[in-house]
Design a binder for these strands. Structure first.
Lengths: 153, 153
DNA sequence: TGACATATTCGGCATATTCCGAATATACAG
DNA sequence: CTGTATATTCGGAATATGCCGAATATGTCA
């Protein structure tokens, strides 16, 4: 009796995927992530292809993409080439990615402010940069607090 | 003497666009936003098409898209149909958009946690949802502080 | 109302993405 | 070294996206 992916679970996968794709995660990878979230145990590529109805090549690239995002972890089994995948308990990965973007944006705005003639424009760019940096800082602080409070590994 | 868009400015526009598109902003709109950031005064669609080298239709849709994001403001001129566009001083728009996504994701995770059999999975989903909510809260607080401290209009 | 200026929509082309299946590579056991 | 099981790469078809120019709509003045 293999996973027929009950209605609820299927729906969950779809919804999570729809919410993740705006973050730049490609569709198949997003669905895979939703699926992994529901799997109590690591799953093999073959199981994935069956559960999600996608080709094995797609499953392979999607899995490694999630791994590169540190959203999934590969559990290699000694004594065989078989690899099992599971979600990583790294909820922060996507937030960190956002923060990198915020930082880069702030930096670019500051640089632009210097090489600009108009005083008003320059001030605006500086203010924007400040704002984004504040946001970045707030998220980083919150992540640290969370990590300490919740997961004193 | 029309805007030949100096090297620096052109570069700035490109860079800002590259940093914005991962947020889901389509290319032309992203470039337009970068351009508007450098404009001391509101600009017309015709100026935009010339400065950015894009068609007028593209400029029109991009401008209205930015407006719908509240990233740009349309300054309609009484007595003529002409519309001028400028950046809005609403730096928070993109962050708010992110927050909406975080909220939706957290909600979906909680819902999924209830209709799931495995205790472990359920706990994981709840924890993730908590995390995203905490992040959302942190950003919202930071935005409020910023607004009060910086712009007591 | 008619004439003009400007903005918006629409159809279609060009390009980029996504995904699959076949072919290839890699690791392991005997 | 050979065979088997698995993962990965690659080419191409289907689909989606982005953008333009022509056509259309909308607003303004006389």
């Amino acid at each position: 009796m293999s996973n027929k992916a009950g209605k609820h679970q299927q729906r969950f996968v779809e919804d999570v995927a729809r919410l993740l794709t705006p973050w730049g995660v490609p569709p198949v990878a997003a669905r895979l992530y939703g699926h992994l979230l529901l799997c109590p145990r690591p799953v093999s590529l073959d199981q994935i292809t069956e559960d999600l109805g996608i080709s094995k090549s797609s499953a392979s690239v999607a899995a490694r993409l999630l791994e590169s995002y540190t959203l999934a972890r590969r559990h290699s089994q000694p004594g065989t080439k078989r690899a099992l995948y599971a979600v990583a308990d790294d909820y922060e990965a996507m937030i960190r990615q956002q923060n990198r973007l915020l930082d880069a944006l702030a930096g670019r705005l500051n640089a632009g402010a210097e090489s600009t003639a108009s005083q008003a424009v320059s001030a605006r760019l500086e203010e924007m940069a400040d704002f984004y940096r504040v946001m970045r800082g707030a998220m980083e602080d919150a992540m640290n607090r969370w990590r300490r409070g919740r997961r004193p590994r």
